[in-house]
Amino acid sequence: MMLALDIRNLHKKYTDFQIRDVSFQLEKGYIMGFIGANGAGKTTTIKSILNMIRIDSGEVYVFGKNMAEHETEVKQQIGCAFGDIDFYTRSRIKTVTDITKKFYKNWNEETYSDCLRRFKLDENKKIAELSTGMKVKYSLALALSHGAKLLILDEPTSGLDPVSRDDLLDLFQELIVDGEISILFSTHITSDLEKCADFITFIDNGQIVASAEKNEFMESYRLVSGSEAHLNEVKERLISYKVNSFGFTGLIRTEDFDPSSKLNASMPSLEEIMIYFAKKEGLYV
């Protein structure tokens, strides 16, 4: 098994926030969804991977190479798309591409032309004239043309309409078909991942809660509901819960759930898992 990305024990402490012992692995040829609430540490982790922030400790390996030691070489294989970051927006696509391609050893002009056609990108347009979705596609066009094998996408679908999002998700799935390209895809729009991710890594309050195959991850939790009388029976074992006029609804680890109890149980969505984990922190504040 070849690992596209291997992150080991990342620590980074700020005055008011820290990521602790972040470790996860992405196998070559798969899409990993990286989820967490705003401020949970997704972007900090991604910037640590790309050596943009100085980590206090930990190691990042991309295709087996240590990022800190081989940064320039490793970056030749990485393509990035950040949903909310713009540079040189007043310049034409053509100008930015002409500059960008010089940095890459494996730039393929033919692939680039194909991508422009396929994504309907007009080279004479200025970056600022592109819609959010088109900007992501332009980043992808650059990444694919330089032969990137690992795509790191930070919130690429945030701010997109449902049609454009679906279009991008189809594209991501197409890209990994031949098993060469791997995608790490951070988002808080969890429904996107239900459609296209193979693995889920969930970060909460700077720590990895779980990193597993998507269905395995979702099956490891149960969403339970019952009357208020039942609540006291399971309260201790719930990750968190909400009380409403009919009783309560809460999230529990499957291993902590007793199937013979009278509670209603169902498999939670990724969104529900995220929400109940976020609520858990609220309980202790």
Binding site: L50, M52, E71, T72, E73, V74, K75, Q76, C80, I85, D86, F87, Y88, T89, R90, T100, F103, Y104
Partner: peptide, 14 residues
């Protein structure tokens, strides 16, 4: 204003 630092950092450079 052009976010040059981000652009340069994302390129394969040291």
């Amino acid at each position: 204003s052009q976010n040059d630092l981000m652009f340069s950092t994302l390129m394969p450079t040291s």
